[in-house]
Design a protein around this nucleic acid. Sequence first.
RNA 1: GCUGGGUUAGCGAAGUGGUCAAACGCAUCUGACUGUAAAUCAGACGGCCUUGUGCCUUCGGGGGUUCGACUCCCUCACCCAGCA
Length: 373
Amino acid sequence: MKFRVTGTDPNSQARTGVLETPHGQIQTPVFMPVATAGAVKTLAPWELSEVGAEIILGNTYHLHLRPGAELIAKRGGYSQWTRWGGPVLTDSGGYQAYSLGATRAKSAKTTNDGVRFYSHIDGSKHEFTPESVLDIQDKLGSDIVMPLDDCPPIEASRKRVESAVIRTREWATRSIEHWQKNSYGADGRALFGIVQGGLFEDLRQQSLRDIQDLPFDGIAVGGVAIASEGKEKINKAVEYVAASLDPSRPHYLMGVGYPDDIVRMVAQGFDMFDCVLPTRLARHGVFWTTNLRQHNLMNAQFKHDATPLDPECRCRICQTFTREYLRHLYATGETLAGRALSFHNLSVTLRLMERLRESISRGTLTTDFAPYL
RNA sequence: GCUGGGUUAGCGAAGUGGUCAAACGCAUCUGACUGUAAAUCAGACGGCCUUGUGCCUUCGGGGGUUCGACUCCCUCACCCAGCA
């Protein structure tokens, strides 16, 4: 994988860049719509293109359980099989191991070797190791591969986070070895490392050193934005590492976020983001506007409102439909409502990324986005 | 006209003598959602306020029985079914 920085903002750590993957180029900072189980929920690939998506995110855990990586490999990989056709990043399942393990009767078990867990679909027993997870993602044909990490809740105890940092480092080392041994990166695919450390400054910095010492193609910050921890905690966790990120590699903040979070984190030097919010909130009747505000379409105020969702938005939905009509669709349970809001929210998000790139190029990020920084 | 059944909060519908301001569903209103087990979940939903094991007004209308009635009796109105 090739990454080059094409511009830097004089008043922040923000930069623009180009990431080259087997399935095409990506302009950074970039937002990756989440297509966990084979699709960005409710949207077709051509709609993702129209909305301005350059790369989407799939999930190893979900695709491994159903339909299985073998089938997808046979059909030429996730990008081909789904007809998305563009670059794909796949998450490793480390987060799923944590989030599913926390709520199941038969809880997932993390050992030094990997994670044993039970399928949320049929309860069957499975195991992920740092190696198996790379093999699966190889079959999925992902452009950017994430290693297995130990992802505890953000508020976990110091002891728990310490062990997560150590385990994540050990798994990272094994991941690199397995990656190199199998020449998985030969065709330009990338393997990123994941930084853990919770809310502990020294552990975050330790984990960052651990990961950056290894020849990963990119640096991801994980363990944030996983369970409604709130902006302050995310800010804090990021603040501990932002200044020490290796500038030659892309920086990926996993799971973020709200538009204003993204703006702030771009200014901290992050290049890549993914988040379920634009599509999940859309299905829940919430829409975003260009001014980075969010609104609940079902609020009574929109009952008689013949304006578009966002007067500043040029997306197809805003050119076509009114708020009152979309509210009506939502109230009556028409699936078009969730689709329309998903399309719109992603439009707003991806347009925001474009505006950020333009501001960085001009060197005016901190003035253009002053209210959010 | 006769016989039987029914009338409960915006709608539907529980409740058949006290623990009922009244289950539940829908509708309505509000909130939550950050590496998607989420087109999901939570709260409010007679009125008032000092928000409490608080006060007030309710279960078609009127009257009665009872310490006490949405629950029993009488009556009126309306609705439904069958018979004329």
